[in-house]
């Protein structure tokens, strides 16, 4: 059996929309021109699509592009070839988490996993928990700034003291384990 190429894998990673026609990309650069985060990416969205098509798996997985994608879908609604670039960025994030390969020093992968664990534990998300887990990986200056924002919001009654949770949490956890088997904790 022939292993699917990296570009086939990525193009078909979207469960619901049954694939993404990366092959039709005409490399027009509309996506890069629209992207609000392009200045911070090591490869532009246009280039990443090109690199996926060229099966440059290692280079793609080691880029920061998809982790710096803000999921704003601006590129998606403008692409003349109907490629859903934002969903492709999501697909790359998932692929990179599954394969445990990503560029050194990125906060995104750890943060995503922490966030998901929080929801699976309680059914709801809770900003202070997220902030704390993030602070461990952030620099001191950010830490102080984050602290100032959090304290101000606490004083205005905008941050809760206790994490919220849903009522039928046991059912919820069993529901989740029918989708992805998880270790109970």
């Amino acid at each position: 059996m022939v292993k699917p190429s990296f570009s086939d894998e990525i193009a078909n990673l979207l469960h619901a929309s049954h694939g993404n026609p990366l092959i039709t990309c005409i490399q027009c650069g509309t996506c890069s021109g629209t992207c609000p985060a392009v200045d911070y990416m090591d490869h532009t969205p246009r280039r990443i699509i090109g690199m996926i098509r060229a099966n440059l798996k290692d280079e793609v997985l080691n880029s920061n592009t998809f982790w710096y994608c803000a999921s704003c879908y601006h590129c998606t609604v403008r692409c003349p070839a109907q490629i859903d670039i934002a969903e492709t960025m999501y697909a790359l994030k998932r692929y990179s988490i599954w394969k445990r390969v990503h560029q050194e020093g990125l906060v995104g992968p750890t943060f995503s996993e922490t966030f998901v664990k929080t929801i699976l534990r309680s059914g709801r998300s809770f900003e202070p928990i997220l902030a704390t887990s993030y602070l461990f990986s952030a620099g001191v200056r950010e830490l102080i700034q984050e602290g100032v924002t959090a304290t101000k919001m606490m004083l205005k009654g905008r941050l809760p003291m206790l994490p919220p949770r849903i009522k039928r949490l046991d059912n919820f956890k069993r529901m989740v384990s029918r989708v992805i088997p998880l270790e109970a904790e």
Partner: peptide, 25 residues
Amino acid sequence: EDWNCCGATTYFHVDELLAYTLCAR
């Protein structure tokens, strides 16, 4: 009654199917 988190953007980083399941509930 008893709604759960929609997963924000982050959920789709990890698992698409699970993200839909949360919203479907």
